[in-house]
Design a protein around this nucleic acid. Structure first.
Lengths: 164, 164
DNA sequence: GTCAAAGTCTTGAGTAAGACAAGACAGGGC
DNA sequence: GCCCTGTCTTGTCTTACTCAAGACTTTGAC
């Protein structure tokens, strides 16, 4: 095993969640802290700087454990692989740039969220909704600035209709 | 080629979109009409009842063409494969049952959507948002009725926090 | 009706993301 | 320090696609 200094900041969090404190878990947490909205592959890449033998499978396992324990959150913009972040327990959604795939957090603009409650007249009234996933698609400032460039490859969803 | 009677109802739609009228496209459209919110595999299965030699690749190609032409819409609930539907051009979102994966359409409860406009004070203010993808997660009536059953396998997202 | 061009489908190979399983290894309670 | 159990490594497999090349079909022109 490599000699890698583990910061203790995550120990309590892991133990409180009933998880053992291991080097791969530290590395995954640090990678996520440094770069939120990373996918499993980026996290693996970052973690391998400190621990080149880390397996991809371990990262998948760690991420699954962190999500199950409520330490991390997983979300999946259409057409992309799953992304992870450590910001949990608050009300926030995500903004994804169609061009450069940058993801930024965004709070809800209003305290209450009327439109996130399905209309009672709908079929959806039979549902007990416990979560609303909201992903905004658009162009970030940098990409809009260079939007004159002709060869734009836009990300999914291949929006055929502009929703609100 | 099999002798399959093609209804003409889709011909104009296809031609208006500049697409040729072919049997695979008819079958995909009919499958989607019969069962909205289907994934590529279910569509393939349904279409093969009429045309057993239809290739999976053809279905992927047809779906891509339909989405590009604005005839169909593609969306991707986290943890599931892409789903397709023919209801396009209106403002609707989706409700997904965590347990049985049933998807139902749901209109926005309010005409305007204040919470779908990111707060101006946020980082997101730099973004030019053109679409908001909203997916509600919860339990449908049937699954809630049988929710006492102990071995529930819930679908993603593994919700650690309840959002609005 | 025939022809040709362009679009579409079939076939086959390839890829990315992640799941599953078994055995080795290590954390942590005692 | 020991041992149980959770975690990691390694290897294999699956799913959901994508890509490419060649055969086939649709469609408009004649």
């Amino acid at each position: 095993m490599l000699l890698v200094v583990m910061r203790t900041s995550w120990d309590d969090t892991l133990r409180a969640a009933g998880l053992r404190v291991t080097l791969p878990r530290h590395l995954v947490l640090e990678a996520l802290e440094a770069r939120p909205h990373s996918d499993a592959d980026s996290i693996l890449g970052a973690a391998r700087h400190s621990y080149p033998n880390l397996s991809a499978q371990a990262v998948y396992g760690v991420l699954k454990a962190l999500v199950a324990a409520g330490i991390a959150r997983r979300f999946e913009p259409a057409g992309a692989s799953a992304l992870y972040e450590l910001r949990v327990g608050d009300n926030h959604h995500h903004l994804v740039c169609r061009r450069c795939a940058t993801v930024v957090d965004v709070d809800c603009a209003v305290a209450s969220a009327p439109c996130l409650t399905p209309s009672p007249s709908e079929t959806g009234a039979d549902f007990a909704v416990d979560e609303a996933e909201v992903i905004f698609w658009g162009l970030c400032a940098a990409c809009r600035a260079s939007a004159a460039a002709p060869d734009i490859t836009l990300l999914t969803p291949a929006s055929t209709t502009t929703e609100r």
